[in-house]
């Protein structure tokens, strides 16, 4: 796929991207490297995988990482109950060796996301979400899969990928990932969007909202993000929620009252809400000020 073809495919989705992201996606796709995406929570890291699945017309296989995630949840597990039942049914069967062998066949294998992604007949997009939450051993285990596109199941042997998935790993940098894992990946860092990008996202995702309101929301969110006192910076999802809530309430202008009544959609902790109230008392937000000046 050429860069222009990828651009065309992405244009068909609702995702707002820039030239930098397009090039990185093209590089990862061309080289067949997994793509490691880092950035603050809510900047659209997971969305990239969904968009690539839509753009490439592939199934999205998702593995959500968490503390204690192991191979049995990520790769495969034997269906123990079924194995026990089979043993009981064939208790009187004289050919024990065949029975034992059959117990470790595909019939008893429960595919988890990683195995599913490499055994799929059609190539898929594999999303390994929040890989920084998984343990270091799991990260080491991922190396074999990502570099060789194969996994080893002790009872069966090595399973090679039938098709090569496009792998997207996301991380919030809760802990640094190993150098070995990073080296195997193409790297993309996503920052909070600037004013133009935020506005473009609002236009694309909420086409029915009044343009003036979209502009005011985008401006206010930018201002909130740049304020040092705000602890949890609003993400893109929160911007969209806020604009949608304002629109649903029939609000067309972002007045101080409107901000006060709907602030819970954009700021998600009490300290931040109190800070906003204090700031509003001292000086109404940028968007409102712009509004009052016409």
């Amino acid at each position: 796929m050429t860069l222009e073809e990828l651009r065309q495919k992405l244009d068909e989705t609702q995702y707002v991207y820039d030239e930098n992201m397009l090039t990185v996606l093209y590089v990862a796709l061309t080289l067949g490297r997994p793509l490691l995406i880092e950035g603050a929570a809510g900047v659209g890291k997971t969305e990239v995988a969904k968009v690539m699945a839509a753009a490439l017309d592939r199934e999205l296989v998702r593995l959500q990482c968490y503390e204690g995630l192991d191979e049995s949840k990520a790769l495969y597990e034997w269906n123990y109950q079924k194995q026990l039942l089979t043993i009981q049914i064939h208790e009187n069967d004289p050919d024990k060796q065949t029975l034992t062998k059959s117990l470790f066949s595909d019939e008893f294998l429960l595919e988890r996301p990683l195995l599913k992604s490499i055994r799929s007949e059609k190539p898929v997009v594999l999303l390994i979400d929040e890989v920084d939450k998984a343990d270091e051993e799991f990260e080491a285990f991922l190396l074999e899969l990502l570099s060789e596109m194969q996994v080893t199941v002790p009872e069966i042997g090595t399973i090679r990928a039938k098709t090569v998935p496009f792998v997207v790993l996301t991380s919030n940098r809760a802990r640094p990932l190993s150098e070995a894992l990073r080296r195997r990946c193409a790297y993309l860092h996503i920052d909070y969007p600037d004013m133009d990008k935020e506005l473009a996202i609002l236009r694309k995702k909420l086409p029915n909202v009044d343009d003036r309101l979209r502009l005011q929301v985008a401006l206010a969110v930018q201002k909130l993000r740049s304020a040092e006192e705000i602890l949890k910076k609003p993400s893109i999802a929160e911007t969209l929620d806020w604009a949608a809530a304002l629109d649903a309430l029939g609000i067309r202008e972002l007045t101080p009252d409107a901000v006060r009544n709907t602030a819970g959609f954009v700021l998600k902790n009490n300290e931040d809400l109190l800070t906003l109230e204090d700031q509003e008392e001292e000086e109404p937000c940028g968007a409102c000020r712009e509004h009052s000046h016409g």
């Binding site: 050429t2 860069l3 030239e19 930098n20 090039t23 990185v24 093209y26 590089v27 990862a28 061309t30 080289l31 490691l36 880092e38 150098e179 990073r182 080296r183 990946c185 193409a186 790297y187 993309l188």
Partner: peptide, 25 residues
Amino acid sequence: RLLAGMDLSNRERVKTALKTVYAST
């Protein structure tokens, strides 16, 4: 391999492509 298939006159694109390959943080 990447540069062989790219338009080398677009400096920023070449830079981003190489950065994706060489830089991992």
